[in-house]
């Protein structure tokens, strides 16, 4: 792990200790660091910004109430993402029980980074919304490993720890999820398919890039 990563983990540990001792500002810093990763996970799992906000908020309530059960030998990010994942799966289960179809949900208004210019933002937003519509068609138990793998750059072991899946089950689900998503993309959103995609070299060489975290905590 890099020096920056270690320093960030050390700082997180200090914030956790301070929050446990009753320092509310330290907890606020933890929330600031994890607001985007947790919100993005909730949005990718639930597909609706308003529900994602609710779920992310509920996740932080649970994090604060269970902070004393956090084991410092584990990565704090994995612990937080596990709480968020379980909460999202619970919500999806309840949604299924209530028989609310995805079509009944309000249309998306996803917030993409405010640093890009408005025109580009509109294009990203449109593509993102259509990708999310495809993700929503995957069963939740296929969607979660895919989201944790691609948006958080987590290793197979870390995803297993968060989801409670065995390594072989995770590999199977990831593979099936990719194939199903590819199939959906071809039939429902062929314009999302990139034009240049012939890979002739082993991606092993640039594995680090594949695993570079996009939404990892950035304290």
């Amino acid at each position: 792990m890099s020096q920056i990563g270690l320093a960030a983990q050390q700082r997180e540990r200090e914030w956790v200790e301070a929050a446990l001792a009753g320092d509310e500002q330290a907890f606020e810093r933890l929330v600031e660091a994890y607001a985007t990763p947790v919100y993005n996970l909730a949005y990718r799992m639930l597909g609706d910004p308003a529900e994602a906000e609710d779920a992310a908020q509920e996740t932080f309530i649970r994090v604060y109430q269970r902070l004393h059960t956090y084991d410092p030998s584990r990565k704090f990010s994995s612990w937080v993402l596990a709480i968020a994942s379980h909460h999202c799966i619970d919500r999806l289960r309840r949604r299924r029980l209530q028989k609310v179809s995805l079509e009944d949900l309000p249309p998306w208004e996803p917030l993409v980074s405010r640093e890009v210019d408005p025109e580009e933002r509109a294009v990203i937003r449109d593509r993102n919304a259509r990708l999310q519509a495809l993700l929503d068609r995957l069963p939740p138990n296929y969607r979660l490993p895919l989201v944790l793998h691609y948006w958080y750059g987590l290793s197979y072991d870390e995803i297993c720890e968060i989801t409670g899946l065995s390594l072989s089950a995770l590999k199977t689900r990831l593979h099936r999820a990719r194939l199903k998503l590819a199939d959906l993309m071809r039939t429902l959103a062929p314009d999302l398919i990139p034009a240049d995609d012939a890979r002739t070299s082993n991606p092993r060489a640039d594995r680090a890039r594949v695993h570079s975290p996009k939404a990892e905590g950035k304290p």
Binding site: E24, F27, E28, V31, E32, A35, T36, Y39, N40, Y43, R44, P49, A52, E53, A56, Q57, F60, P110, L111, V112, S113, R114, I124, N128, L131, L146, Y150, W151, R178, L179, L181, A182, M185, L192, I193, P194, D197, V210, K214, A215
Partner: peptide, 23 residues
């Protein structure tokens, strides 16, 4: 193809004051 689409998909950010409200 699906790998490339997912690798380039953006991270969705919460509303600006979300962190403060959530904390």
């Amino acid at each position: 193809q699906v790998d490339r689409v997912l690798r380039t998909a953006p991270v969705v950010e919460p509303p600006p004051d979300f962190a403060r409200r959530a904390a």
